[in-house]
Design a protein around this nucleic acid. Structure first.
Lengths: 171, 171
DNA sequence: TTGACTTACTTCACATGTAAACGTATGCTA
DNA sequence: TAGCATACGTTTACATGTGAAGTAAGTCAA
């Protein structure tokens, strides 16, 4: 097919007639690698500085955003993890005294969790360092590259296909 | 759009004078989200079609690449996971009869693992579907966007700063 | 050769994640 | 109102990951 097939060195053909799935696979491996690196370094930083895992940090971030508290089911949806996982995380955060739990007044099956003052204070500090850590990690990357990385990642995300494409042209 | 720049409340101007770490954090969240989505869908596909987890698939991929076998320590380095983790993975893959293990002839502390014929056959099929799955996931993304996503991810990876920048200009 | 590191792997305790099976509370329908 | 389906959270069993401690084997200096 595709007519470059005759009389072309095999090595050059790869760029012209891409193997289906080749680029996508390389993209996935690159994503995996960057994710792994960042995850490990954020996780270890949070752990040594604040005794927090990234998982716990994510819970605190949700509760910081929803100051009126969240039911465990909502937490589980927002974090995109299973209920059983949230159950355990909440128990450990309760033990750390970073969150509080009370029964919902409307639904006796439901529990509402909130940040404690201690949890809020810890999250504020941790979020600050979290941000700085990422800024430092990428300090050598030009701002333009960061912008285009962000927009290209958005364009790959599943929800992007269903949204109305408001293409704000860069620059 | 954006012509709203005159007489703009400070709160809106944040795009002009970026908060340090803001973009980096958004980038991280976007990366996390895409990673999570792809990981879950690949993992669940491999599991239902082949009884494989992504972790096991990754081990098989390494052993497919190194046909002479790998010591557990090398496996652990290549996969960037701890030795304890590899230990368990190898035990489960042995139980699945997908890999074989023998003592190294040179070093009696060392074990060499290899694909069994069954493991190789399974990996071939799984790698094929893995590739197709990714291709399908991104079928609506223009090839140009995939290329730029790949190159921007590479530019964010830590090893990129130390490499000689051979910028193959696209197009 | 002996003694002291180092290396290779395993094991243990634990955190984080899933899926499935419960128990209990709600809510809807007949 | 009785009964059934659904929703909420917990528990269990398991996979995957870490870090630390333990065992056995290799290495090297004295």
């Amino acid at each position: 097919m595709i007519q470059t097939d005759w009389a072309m060195p095999a090595a050059l053909k790869e760029n012209v007639v891409p193997v289906p799935g080749q680029i996508e696979t390389r993209l996935w491996l690159q994503l995996l690698s960057l994710h792994g690196e960042l995850f490990a370094s954020l996780n270890s930083m949070l752990n040594s500085e604040f005794g927090l895992s990234l998982a716990k940090f994510d819970v605190l971030a949700q509760l910081d955003r929803y100051r009126d508290g969240l039911a465990l089911g909502q937490l589980s949806q927002n974090l995109k993890v299973t209920g059983g996982n949230v159950s355990g995380l909440v128990q450990r955060l309760l033990a750390d005294d970073l969150i509080s739990r009370e029964m919902s007044s409307e639904d006796r099956r439901s529990f509402i969790v909130r940040l404690t003052p201690k949890g809020e204070a810890l999250f504020r500090k941790a979020a600050e360092i979290h941000k700085k850590h990422l800024a430092k990690r990428f300090e050598n990357v030009p701002a333009r590259d960061l912008d285009s990385a962000l927009s290209v990642l958005k364009s790959l995300s599943s929800n992007d296909h269903t949204e109305s494409k408001k293409q704000s042209r860069k620059r």
